[in-house]
Amino acid sequence: MCSVMQDINELPPELLSLIFWHRRGQCSQRDFDWLTVTWVCRRWRRVALAYPALWRTIYDGMGRSDKSWIPTFLDRALGAPLVVAIVFSKDAQYTVQALAPHAHMLRVFRLHTTRRAVLLSSYNLIKTTFPFLEELALACHPHQDDPDSDVPPPASYDLPRQNAPRLVDLDLCGLHFPWDSTVYSLLRSFRLSCPATRIPIHRLLLILQACPSLESLSMMERPWTSMR
């Protein structure tokens, strides 16, 4: 056993980091079991803390009340492009606020919420330039008893293409950017469900023309109208 540990300890940090990354990949986004690699010894912990990719994935979902780990992960991610999913979190606004200083590092951002105020907070992030953002999913499923029902929808917010030059996957449910927004160009995947207002058919055609590399298109509940 001592010989095995000695052999492992002789591994260079770069290889040890990849082993940790493989272990993390075996766990689901909700699972923190991979953190045990930081408890083995001081060297392993030092190597893990110095590998930003280990900490770049943030999943804040239902049933997870303790969020103290989120700022820690964001700080340890350093300059690694972030993968963030906020899925019907009870206190999603906390996560959105914690994410704000790091928003420019987002590579994937998924938000599913039942509260309009949370959606509005996420729109405030969109004022940022996203040089790494490739996938954006925003979904709002408000309840009738939503305490934020009087919050106006952020229809005036936009994400110009120049602010997200790498964006190729866009998923919108219950909301949309302005139909003439440049965000709808150069997409490879576009999903639109139950938009706040239906898309005019001529705008849909213009969007399709602006996405010559489009591979996947999904539109639910007849989200287009004829010109009148």
Rank of each mutant, 00 (worst) to 15 (best):
S156T: 08
L167G: 07
R166W: 10
P160L: 13
H176S: 09
Y157D: 13
L175W: 10
I199M: 15
L187R: 09
R203Y: 08
L192P: 05
P147R: 05
S156G: 08
Q144E: 12
L172A: 05
R203P: 01
P152M: 02
P195W: 04
S185N: 05
S193L: 11
Q144Y: 03
A196G: 02
D180L: 06
Q144W: 01
A155K: 03
D169K: 14
D148N: 11
Q162A: 10
P154L: 03
L204T: 05
P165R: 01
V168G: 02
P195L: 05
R188E: 15
L205F: 00
P152E: 13
R198A: 15
L175N: 13
V183W: 02
Q162I: 09
P178Y: 02
P165L: 00
N163H: 15
P152I: 00
L175R: 05
L187P: 07
P195D: 12
P152S: 07
L204F: 12
Q162E: 15
P153D: 13
L204K: 01
D145Q: 10
D171Q: 13
P147V: 01
D150Y: 06
R161F: 08
T197Q: 12
V151S: 10
H202I: 10
Q144L: 06
I207P: 00
I201E: 15
D145N: 14
L205V: 05
T197W: 02
D169C: 07
P147N: 09
L187M: 04
C194K: 11
I201G: 02
T197I: 08
A155F: 04
A196N: 03
R203S: 12
L159P: 01
S181V: 09
R198V: 12
A196P: 00
R203E: 07
S185Q: 12
L170R: 09
R166C: 11
P160D: 12
V183N: 00
D171F: 07
V168K: 13
R166V: 04
L186R: 14
L192K: 05
S156D: 14
I207Y: 00
L205A: 00
D171V: 08
Y184M: 01
S185A: 13
P160N: 11
P195R: 08
V151I: 15
A164K: 01
P200C: 05
Q162L: 10
C194V: 09
P152F: 04
P195M: 12
S156W: 09
R198N: 14
L159Y: 03
L187F: 01
Q162T: 10
I207Q: 02
L192Q: 06
P154R: 03
P154V: 06
C173D: 14
L159D: 08
W179Q: 08
L172V: 01
H202W: 08
A196K: 01
R166D: 06
I207E: 00
V183D: 08
S189A: 11
V168W: 06
C173Q: 12
A164V: 07
A155R: 07
C194Q: 15
